[in-house]
């Protein structure tokens, strides 16, 4: 049984002189994430909720090993991920809804290329490709250059390629951002399918309905700090999720409860 755990991760970024000048501040570093801890289990969707700039993407990038935390540790099945980083990266799929494809290649070539970098055999690649391309209706367009695909199809291709390694841990930053309603429904359904396949799924969003529809547990992040975490039902109790969020948000801002 796979388990992922993060302990007290903190991350700050250096602010350039130009940014300091623009914000009229002398502070040369900004804390993007502070003392963030959480554990993620198989067959569960964990949601990070927060406004833009709260630190959600930073948290996901650190968990995905794309960037390193200043302090704190991440454990996959009780082993520090940086002890066996290439093994961990084989197990992780990091997705964003932003388009991240080279227009010049076809979906078929890009999928094969990425699968090779993940060290998958030709047979594994073929099987994964067939499964994902059929699931997202890409098969008919697999030999068309990405440049010539519709925006919706590009988004589906991007999603399929991000999952080419059949990852055990799926980290999805803003899963439906910029997607049309049909693609959004596809993604939501697919995340629920992956949950049934016992994957560890972590998503970030600022859309309450996504959390309510998909997540088993939720954490609210404000200004880099986790201010609330729990089972969705426990967190909301008799209130709606947006009420819970804005209570915390205005409290953080120093306003009266709304």
């Amino acid at each position: 049984m796979n388990e992922l755990r993060v302990e007290n991760i903190t991350k700050s970024f250096k602010i350039s002189k130009k940014q300091q000048k623009n914000s009229k501040s002398n502070v040369d570093r900004i804390v993007a994430l502070q003392d963030f801890s959480a554990s993620f289990k198989e067959g569960e969707i964990y949601g990070l909720l927060g406004p833009n700039g709260a630190g959600k993407t930073t948290a996901l990038r650190i968990i995905a090993s794309l960037i390193k935390a200043d302090s704190g540790e991440i454990y996959f099945n009780d082993k520090n991920i940086y002890d066996e980083i290439y093994f961990y990266r084989k197990k992780v799929g990091f997705l964003t809804s932003e388009l991240k494809l080279d227009d010049f290649f076809t979906p078929d070539y890009t999928f094969t290329y990425m699968s090779r970098l993940y060290g998958l055999s030709e047979e594994e690649t073929k099987a994964n490709k067939e499964k994902l391309f059929n699931r997202f209706g890409i098969s008919a367009f697999k030999d068309v250059k990405i440049h010539d695909l519709s925006t919706g199809m590009k988004q589906k291709v991007s999603l399929a390629i991000s999952l080419c390694n059949n990852p055990d841990v799926i980290i999805f930053d803003e899963p439906t951002n910029g997607l049309d309603i049909v693609a959004s429904k596809d993604v939501e359904d697919y995340l629920l399918d992956l949950k049934k396949e016992n994957k560890i799924i972590i998503i970030s969003t600022h859309i309450f309905s996504i959390i309510e529809k998909l997540c088993d547990r939720v954490a609210i992040i404000l200004k880099g700090k986790k201010v609330l975490e729990g089972e969705l039902k426990e967190v909301t109790k008799d209130k709606s999720l947006d009420n819970v969020f804005f209570d915390l948000y205005y409290k953080e801002q120093g306003h009266e409860e709304y």
Partner: peptide
């Protein structure tokens, strides 16, 4: 610029 570099850096290659 295209954002494809992050995908490459996520793969298990040095």
């Amino acid at each position: 610029e295209r954002g494809t570099l992050a995908s490459l850096l996520m793969t298990p290659i040095k």
